[in-house]
Amino acid sequence: MKSIILLIILVAAGIIGLSSALYVVDETEQVIILRFGEVQAVKRTPGLNIKLPFVDVVVTLDKRILRIDAPPVAMPDIEKENLVIDSYARYRITDPVKFRKTLRTESNARSRMADIVTSSLRTEVARRDRIEIIGAEPVLNPNGSQLVDSEGVPIFIGTETRGEILLAVLADVRGQVQEQDLGIEITDVRIKRADFPDEVTPSIYTRMRAERNRIASKFRAEGDEKELKIRADADKQSTIILAEAQKTSNEIRGEGEAEAIKILADALNKDPDFFAFRKSLEAYNNILNTDTTVILSTESDLFKYLQGPYATQDHGKDID
């Protein structure tokens, strides 16, 4: 029975001792082994390791890319106009020992680095104008005026100036980190947001509204212009069509008249005297009506038989 208890004690002691002598470095971690505060070893590769039980202390640090989230800060640009810039950075701990000496903890590193990133960004932003920070510039005509599209809106073209700003900030921050020997590597600095300060926003909205109103009235004027042009053109064409038709019509009518006259005249010319005779008779018929009184001589041809069955010889001689 004694040996059983002994066995249990032995096993328990073995487990405790073993667990104290062994430590695991995870894929995501790096560790420093401290012996009485003194750095004994740095392990950056994952796996099972042995240390002096109860004496060596394991300090675990992250090996992954870590996040620095700088708070949004109003920064004046070169024209002293504020933009609220929200930035972030990423870093990783490259030298755990230095990191432990200088920044000590991740939360401390976060706030220290956020300060460094913000101040570096502030410096860089103060050298640039708003257009460079936002990232697009107006396209200019050769004469220096802004190029506009068909709607009268200025055309902008994207630039890589924001990238340049960030590269400059990254270089600056890296320099400071190196100088202060912080044991970290800044991998990236980015502007997450760049916004107008709240107090500027209403004036931006006013400008946007004015610009839209301008575009809208341009559209409306264009509508009127197009309508008037098309209608005027249609009226013009219609008038021309009708006038030309009138012209053609008159020509045709004239031709008809001319031909009719010619045909008739050709026929009548075969005996102008007979025509005159007949036409005169017709005319008398039309001229003389019930309102007319005619004085007729009994010596006229018409009445040459009025006074006897034999006509006086001197009448009608002129007929031939």
């Binding site: 008779l281 003389l288 009445f303």
Partner: peptide, 23 residues
């Protein structure tokens, strides 16, 4: 010619007032 003249007179004269004068 005579016929045409007389026919015309026939047509015209009934409708008009006539004064027939012996010179």
């Amino acid at each position: 010619r005579q016929r045409l003249y007389l026919e015309a007179m026939e047509a015209i004269l009934p409708g008009v007032s006539k004064i027939i004068v012996d010179p």
